[in-house]
């Protein structure tokens, strides 16, 4: 997936929109901040999620971090490969490390998300604040 074409949340999830479907993962920046990811419990297919509410939690060697739903929708697919190989999120966050596919219930949610350029600026500002 080309990171340029994705939409981004302030909580560092990315969304790839395909019609009414949204593939969701976490960003390169997020995986780098989390460190080695060792486990995540995938949500059940069919679960309805609301934008900015918890989709799942990622366990890294360092900490537990929630993944928030960047848009509202129903989970129609989960990346089962992550059960055995959670490190795919570290290795390929925009590809093999995708987490779920949602069927969006409110496509207007996408308006809350950032473009690649906006997200890049957002991270730069955030990193400055940390110093």
């Amino acid at each position: 997936m080309d990171p340029e074409e994705l939409r981004y949340s302030a909580d560092h999830e990315w969304v790839k929109v395909e019609g009414k479907q949204a593939i969701v993962g976490i960003t390169e920046y997020a995986q780098s901040e989390l460190g080695d990811i060792v486990y995540l419990e995938l949500p059940d297919v069919g679960t309805e999620v609301v934008m900015e509410e918890e989709l799942t939690e990622i366990e890294s060697t360092k900490t537990t971090s929630p993944v928030l739903a960047p848009v509202s929708g129903k989970i129609i697919e989960v990346n089962d490969e992550l059960k055995e190989s959670p490190q795919l999120i570290n290795e390929d966050p925009y590809g093999k490390g995708w987490i779920v596919t949602l069927k969006m219930t409110n496509p207007d949610d996408l308006e809350n998300l950032m473009s690649a350029k906006e997200y890049e600026e957002f991270i730069e500002q955030g990193s400055d604040d940390d110093r």
Partner: peptide, 9 residues
């Protein structure tokens, strides 16, 4: 330093 190449490695 919390890590260099990654905690697991």
């Amino acid at each position: 330093p919390i890590s260099y190449a990654g905690t697991l490695a």
